[in-house]
Amino acid sequence: MCDTSQSSTAEAALSAPRLAPGSAVDPIALEPVDEVSITVLMDNTFDGLLPSDAHTTRAGFGPPVPADHFAGGTTAVGLLAEHGFSALVTVRRGQQRTTLVFDAGLSPTGILTNADQLGLRFDDVQGVILSHGHFDHAGGLGGLARRFGRRMPMTIHPFAWTPRRLNIPQRPFEMPTLSQKALIAEGFDVIERTRPSLLVDGSVLITGEVDRTTDFEHGMPAAHEAHLEGRWQHDPTVIDDQALVVHLRGQGLVVLTGCGHSGVINIVRHAQRLTGVPTLHALLGGFHLSGPAFDPVIPPTVAALTSMNPHRIVPGHCTGWRAQHALAAALPDAWVASSSGTTHHLVGA
């Protein structure tokens, strides 16, 4: 979730960079893959006029639907966009393809509506990854479970079950809290992990808790709270935030974030340290740089990403328009506009 409240100096100190608890697994042998395909099932925007290119397939307007006020009795519709994120990730290594769902959007049916319009099925999905427990990434899990029609493993951080709220004056908002019991009943085999996990025969890495090492990514401002030890308290770290990482053969790392609450530079550097792969090929997902509280984070983030020289950068969801403009200006050859229904094709060398 996004929030625009400012932190006090004392609260900022609570979110100072720190290392994730426990021993790090370093390095991790992440098997290279030959191809990665990432379809954005849901994002905050949909643009039916964006052109496709050699590495990007855009979803245009869909088949006709009834609309009596048009002369032909029908009209075309686009895909849904909402304040949420979800992606379908397929990796290919040799002849073997594996598909995972990363996050599930905001609404119970949004990603299913978009998948149906795109002609996508979930028959070959082998697992679900939840980037963190915020409801705008978990809203469609119930609908997914029913569509799967079979039990499905889901990797999640145990802090994702924690109640949270935005304690904003005049409009406080207690976020919907995930129920582990309900998800198990829906058909998910819940796998709780705080440390890195290797999936798909060692070719997909889920980061687990991300080391906080930069001096400018301080996490969420004071209004973001979690209910811990019987009381509401500032939750700057969103410690359950984790990302998906793939090593694209001959190209480098492909990193997919949900909101990037850990800080996207922290996330990329954490992935580089874990895998021993120094090159960032592509970074996609939410960068959480929206709102006044995050304006100071934009310049050092842009500078750090520019120094990494990625081939493709696709900021979406909670990145915010100021950060989008800054990233597009600094990385014009790498920046790609995000939109619901877009498929990004990344091929190894």
Rank of each mutant, 00 (worst) to 15 (best):
L112P: 02
V255F: 00
T9I: 15
A71C: 09
D295V: 14
C318L: 13
G94I: 04
L100D: 02
L49D: 12
R92K: 14
A185H: 11
L274H: 03
R312Q: 13
F216G: 00
R193H: 13
F135D: 13
D123I: 08
G276S: 02
Q170Y: 13
R92G: 09
T109D: 11
N309P: 09
P64L: 03
G187F: 05
F173E: 10
F122M: 07
G320M: 01
H311A: 15
Q242E: 05
Q242T: 03
N114C: 08
M154H: 00
Q96W: 07
T75A: 14
V264S: 00
P153A: 01
L50T: 06
Q251L: 04
S107R: 10
S262W: 07
I129C: 10
A12K: 15
P27S: 08
F61P: 02
V210R: 05
D189P: 06
F46E: 03
S52I: 01
I156H: 06
P158N: 04
A282E: 06
Q251N: 09
A59D: 09
I239V: 15
E82M: 11
L248G: 01
D43L: 08
L198V: 05
T207P: 00
A59L: 06
M42L: 15
A329F: 01
L130E: 10
A293Y: 09
T75H: 11
R249Y: 08
V125C: 04
S197R: 12
H137V: 11
G202A: 09
